[in-house]
């Protein structure tokens, strides 16, 4: 899921200081799990805004805020409330924010959150980054542990000299990605494979932005 955290409230207030009325959009997926765009967060945003003398014309939690068409349909019943608002505050990730930007061309839209990374939730509201969406997966060569993400240097062929007692040079709280890969390959009886494969430099063109994908076959007219 996409991991978000609340932006500094004073930065948001600075953004919206010229507006008086707002419509709030949350998201039932990642932002709800992150505690940045679910029911309680929308409620407290409303309260804070009202305490600052602003009006909230309505609020809504999209099922999947990054889904443009679905969100558009879901928002139809809120037309009046949205028309009345001078500005929309989106409490999901940057993708959700840009759904609103696309749907409301003439309205100011501001993000309430910073979008951080694609994360795994390890327990309630504990997240870590395991995949950086590089575009060409090499997990098949690294025992299923991603060094591009788990190693701060993205090293592809074994630990650097900074590895200390199995931990990463940048922090004793991070286990060295290459020690993890080594240990897993050892368990899988695949050390030989690890020794024999030199992973080539990545072709970063697969991560060239902005990326688009059409995953279905286009219907012939």
């Amino acid at each position: 899921m996409i991991i978000t955290k609340k932006r500094e409230f004073k930065d948001l207030m600075e953004n919206i200081k010229g507006y008086k009325s707002f419509f709030l959009i949350g998201c039932s997926e990642c932002a709800t799990l992150c505690g940045t765009g679910g029911e309680p967060e929308l409620k407290s945003m409303k309260e804070v805004l009202e305490a600052e003398g602003k009006a909230v014309t309505g609020s809504f939690i999209a099922k999947t805020g990054c889904q443009v068409l679905g969100t558009k349909v879901e928002l139809k019943p809120f037309k009046d409330a949205i028309d009345k608002a001078e500005c929309i505050i989106v409490m999901s990730c940057g993708a959700g924010t840009q759904t609103a930007v696309e749907l409301y061309e003439d309205k100011a839209v501001y993000p309430a959150n910073d979008s951080l990374f694609l994360g795994n939730m390890t327990r309630l509201q504990f997240f870590d980054e395991r995949c950086s969406l590089c575009g060409r997966c090499i997990l098949d060569k690294t025992g299923g542990i991603c060094p591009i993400t788990a190693c701060p240097k993205g090293i592809l062929n074994g630990p650097c000299g900074g590895c200390k007692d199995g931990h990463c040079e940048i922090s004793p709280d991070i286990k060295c990605a290459w020690v993890r890969i080594y240990e897993r390959m050892k368990k899988l009886n695949k050390l030989q494979e690890l020794c024999e494969t030199t992973i080539e430099a990545k072709d970063w063109s697969a991560a060239q932005k902005p990326r688009t994908l059409i995953a279905r076959e286009e219907k012939k007219k």
Binding site: N157, G158, P159, G161, C163, K164, D165, G166, W178, V179, I181, Y182, L191, L194, C195, T198
Partner: peptide
Amino acid sequence: EANPLEPQLIKFDK
């Protein structure tokens, strides 16, 4: 004198 040593040796070979 890396600890653990074996991953370091694998890298040396590479």
